[in-house]
Nucleic acid binder design. Sequence first.
DNA 1: CGATGAACAGTATGTTCATAG
DNA 2: CTATGAACATACTGTTCATCG
Lengths: 120, 120
Amino acid sequence: MAFMIAQRAFIKLYLISMVEEHHGYGYEMLEEMKARFESFGYSPPQSEIYRALHELVHDGVLYRTKQLKGNDPKVDFQEIVIYHFTDDGHEKANLYKKQVKVDLDRCIGMLTKAATDNYK
Amino acid sequence: MAFMIAQRAFIKLYLISMVEEHHGYGYEMLEEMKARFESFGYSPPQSEIYRALHELVHDGVLYRTKQLKGNDPKVDFQEIVIYHFTDDGHEKANLYKKQVKVDLDRCIGMLTKAATDNYK
DNA sequence: CGATGAACAGTATGTTCATAG
DNA sequence: CTATGAACATACTGTTCATCG
């Protein structure tokens, strides 16, 4: 058993949730996570987001489609990669989320214990 | 800012507390940590304990003395390394603990947030 | 087996670079 | 500046090996 939850797993968890809510693309989800955790002084590195997305694709949870950002191609030619769940992606994702939840609770327990054990 | 607290810092925190309470030696403190976190499925590796102790010595927080385990040398010749605070070791340790506390709370906050954000 | 230490190997992570529009 | 991807370097961790009594 590893000591703490891996950053990768933490990010994957949010990516799954964000794809559930609004089939997003990498950069957008990166910015969303940065905003969410800015107050914690945590800024997820760009490379980790893409690696996590690639892994989720590799694991058969997500698949990719490409499209141009904005409805009018004349205005913005920026190509973006949109992520969707595969046929059994939701099932796989829920299983993964369950596993992460266990680890999440375990980590919270350990850190809370450390806070009470060492600061009396 | 790193994502999560490092295992090393987590272990150092406990080592400092254990030295405060009963000038212990490496193996003993390893076993104590193992026992404390057995229910979490976490078993701190032996190498990390010693590395952490070496770093605390290197950082001028602790110094080492050697002695034979057991009062009667004829019974047990096992040599053990006892750790003590240096002159300004307590001061340094308290500063370190303060810093770790901040990080500990930050990590608990992030993990708790993740638990509420992704499991509704 | 208890006790300490070091070497080695792998992997996760952070930084930088590359490309494109 | 948005957007994606890969390369590179390294810090951290886990496993194994070495030694001693």
